[in-house]
Simulated scan of single mutants.
Amino acid sequence: MTAGVAGEQVWLTILEASRRSGLSEPTLRYYEQIGLIGPVPREPSSGHRRYDAATMDVLDALGCLRSAGLRVEDLRRYLELLARGDAAAAEQRELFDHHADRLEAEIERLRSRLAYLRLKARLWDARDRGDAEAAKRLVPELLALIERF
C-alpha cells in the first residue's frame, strides 16, 4: 500500500484492492458477503468500500491461493486454521499438501494434452509435406496419448 504520513491509515478503493489482490471487484464483494473477509468500512459520504492494510493482507493471500486453484471452502478452511496459529500447523500442511498434489496431477494432465497437440501438429505437417510414412508412424503415439486422457 502507498505510504502515508507516519501512523496514518491508508485506504484503498475497491478498484485498487482488486488490482492489487488479483481478485475481481465482484469477487471482493462476494468474499465480504459470505464472510471470508470482515465487513469492509464504507466512506461515509459515498458509501464506497475502503480497504485497510489488514484486509489487504488477507486479500493478497486469498488471491494467491485462489489463483493456485483453492476453492472458496478451502479458503475458508485456511482462514479458520490461520486464526488458530501454530496449533493448526499440521492441518495447514495437510491442506496445502492436498492441493499441491491435486495441482501436480492437473499439470501432468496438461502436459499430456500439450504432447497430444504437438503430435497432431507433426501429423498435419507430415500430411502437408506429403510424407505418408511419417504420418503413419505418428498414429500409434497419438493413440497411446489418447489412452492417457
Rank of each mutant, 00 (worst) to 15 (best):
L59A: 07
E43N: 14
F149G: 12
G85S: 05
A126R: 09
L28S: 01
E43Y: 03
R118K: 11
R93H: 10
V58M: 03
A121V: 09
L75Q: 03
P26F: 07
A61V: 14
R137L: 14
Q33T: 06
H99N: 13
Y31H: 08
A135I: 11
D52R: 10
G7A: 03
A54I: 04
E25F: 01
A87D: 13
A68T: 12
E108W: 01
E108N: 03
L95T: 04
A126H: 11
A100S: 10
H98E: 15
R49G: 00
E108I: 08
Y31V: 03
D128W: 12
A144N: 10
D60A: 09
M1R: 03
A53N: 02
V10A: 12
R102Q: 14
Q33H: 10
I107E: 14
E73S: 14
L81Q: 04
A121L: 08
E106S: 07
A87F: 01
R129V: 06
Y116D: 01
L143Q: 13
E141N: 02
E104V: 07
A90K: 12
Y78H: 15
A135V: 10
K136Q: 13
G22Y: 05
G7Q: 03
L117Q: 13
A53D: 03
C64V: 11
K136C: 09
P26E: 05
S21L: 08
E25A: 15
R102G: 04
F96T: 00
A135H: 06
L82S: 14
R50I: 05
D97F: 00
Y116L: 14
M1G: 09
A132I: 12
A68N: 02
V5Q: 15
A105T: 09
E91D: 14
Y30G: 01
E91Y: 07
L65D: 04
L103I: 11
Q9M: 14
K120P: 05
V10I: 15
H99F: 11
W11D: 02
Q33V: 00
L79N: 08
R19F: 02
W124G: 03
H48E: 06
S46F: 01
R42N: 00
E32A: 02
S67Y: 01
L15C: 14
V10Y: 10
V139H: 00
Q9C: 06
A87L: 09
T27V: 06
L145G: 03
A87R: 10
L81F: 09
G7E: 06
D74L: 04
G7Y: 06
S18G: 15
A132V: 15
A100E: 12
E91S: 09
T55Q: 15
I37Q: 12
G85V: 08
P39F: 06
L75C: 06
L79C: 09
T13F: 05
A83H: 09
